[in-house]
Design a protein around this nucleic acid. Structure first.
Lengths: 198, 198
DNA sequence: GTTAGCATGTAAGGAGTTACATGATTTT
DNA sequence: AAAATCATGTAACTCCTTACATGCTAAC
């Protein structure tokens, strides 16, 4: 949240790399990408696009408008500067890179970074989560007051979720380190693997 | 997010039920309870407490201040009205109850509600998550464009997380329905199952 | 012909974080 | 004695969501 603007910018830059898109479509793709829960509102997206236009990170493409269509469908595409900004944001490895939202979007675009960067981001993310677990463990041991049944269950479930996340990251890190197996990054670690849906 | 104020209020009301507490301590407990990630800032908590004071939901207790301590440690406790408000918020089952943050805090205080309410909240939460999965599945099938390796892995992992959440809820619902087993709510359902991970 | 989805925006307002400000107490 | 942590606040600022406003296009 809070620092979501940055995230959106990076996401827009990354998505437009696939080809020109207009706002409405961007929003859908964005929601699918980082929208586990919250959805991005127009009131958030369009102003961001305007801002990016002004910063010359993206530009409007001439709209294919038939004599009939009065309403323009504005199609955006990345500029050279935008492309450089994307590279810059992706290679700039730092604390912000492993914050919840930021991590997700960066991960989604891992295909366009070097393994070195990928590893640093994955490892940073993992330590962040590990710290979280440690902190909780520490605080939990300090307040040894016996917790309520449900509150305890919630706590347990929360801890397990984070631990699961850590295992996922470890799998991915391993996969990066020895790409012995055929291409699939960490897929078989996460399991699920086979989907036999039509 | 957004409607976090409500959540904080409910949490404060619930926590103070355990006994009087001062702001600093409340904050720590709160962060431990709903703080998987974000932490609650003072700039958020204290104004909320002030607001609740004005609404007579809580009151300041006379500070045990020795002649030495100049700085008062303000201790809060729930009023009768606050207690009623807590009951009201907990029994009022509706969409807000199964929003991410709201659900967590409500769940933590399940010990103080009836099974009927608990079931409705659990089931509401489960449908919400199920809808989320369906929506994603639907959108994913529409855009059959082959996804990038990493983006795909992220998607997969996200879906699995939600599915896991659904299973957890199902376990809890079962446990509520037949409390045959000894007390422990859904603990053994969440499992942990056997971890003989390779 | 009307509903639903495509498509683009803006304005107001709320919510909460950051940074600031202050001081006490405990630990190293 | 310094550092850490306890403890309580406030103000400004940043974001973002909500609600509003408009109009096209496809399906039912």
């Amino acid at each position: 949240m809070t620092r979501r603007a940055e995230t959106i910018e990076l996401a827009v830059l990354g998505l437009l790399h696939e080809g020109p898109m207009h706002g409405y479509e961007l929003r859908k793709r964005l929601n699918l990408m980082l929208g586990w829960g919250r959805v991005l509102s127009y009131g958030s997206l369009y102003p961001t696009l305007k801002k990016m236009l002004k910063a010359h990170l993206i530009e409007e493409t001439a709209t294919a408008l038939t004599p009939v269509t009065r309403r323009p469908r504005i199609v955006y595409q990345v500029t050279e500067a935008g492309h450089r900004e994307f590279e810059h944001l992706m290679t700039e490895v730092g604390p912000t890179a492993w914050e919840d939202d930021n991590f997700d979007i960066r991960f989604a675009f891992f295909g366009r970074t070097d393994m070195e960067i990928r590893l640093r981001v994955l490892e940073g993310r993992r330590s962040r989560l590990q710290e979280r677990l440690d902190r909780i463990q520490r605080e939990l041991s300090l307040t040894q007051k016996e917790v309520d049944q449900y509150a305890g269950e919630l706590q347990r479930h929360g801890v397990e979720s984070v631990e699961r996340e850590v295992r996922w990251l470890s799998g991915l890190i391993d996969a990066e380190r020895n790409p012995t197996k055929q291409g699939l990054a960490g897929a078989e670690v996460t399991t699920t693997t086979e989907r036999k849906d039509p």
